[in-house]
Amino acid sequence: MKAVIKYFRDIIVGGWSLVLGYTVTLSEFFKPIITVQYPRVKLEMDPAYRGHIELVKLPGEDGHFCLACGTCERACPSNVIKIQGVKPKAGAGKVGIMYLIDFSRCSLCGLCVDVCPVDALRHSMEYDLAFTSRWDNVIDLVARFNEPQAQERG
């Protein structure tokens, strides 16, 4: 007799727990959609987002501020950065003419941005970075800076 009671009790208690669960899933039907149809709709990145590094482009300023001092090169944990600088004329300070990063090895830690003595670096907003070749990951930031579509952010 006890077994019979337990049998029916299990059915009722278990069945009720399923009904409770289904009320939750049913109520979710009437809530707004939170997913985004990604390739067609793109999310706007938060201003704090850390993409790969880029040279700071300020409105009203022509050039970048990189002095090719190599501090970021030494701070980088994965040897991502390679810089070349020249002195435009005798007695003048160095100016970076080539700033290569190997993005495939970058861990986006931001140590280079922290150590830069002249704040010439910042994180970009790019996030769709998939490439077909390993060499596509090597980006020259100076060339990127000189492109017309380079973003000016304050």
Binding site: D10, G14, G15, S17, L20, G21, V24, T25
Partner: peptide, 8 residues
């Protein structure tokens, strides 16, 4: 709790 904990 409604959805999971009590679920048989």
């Amino acid at each position: 709790n409604r959805l999971v904990t009590g679920n048989v």
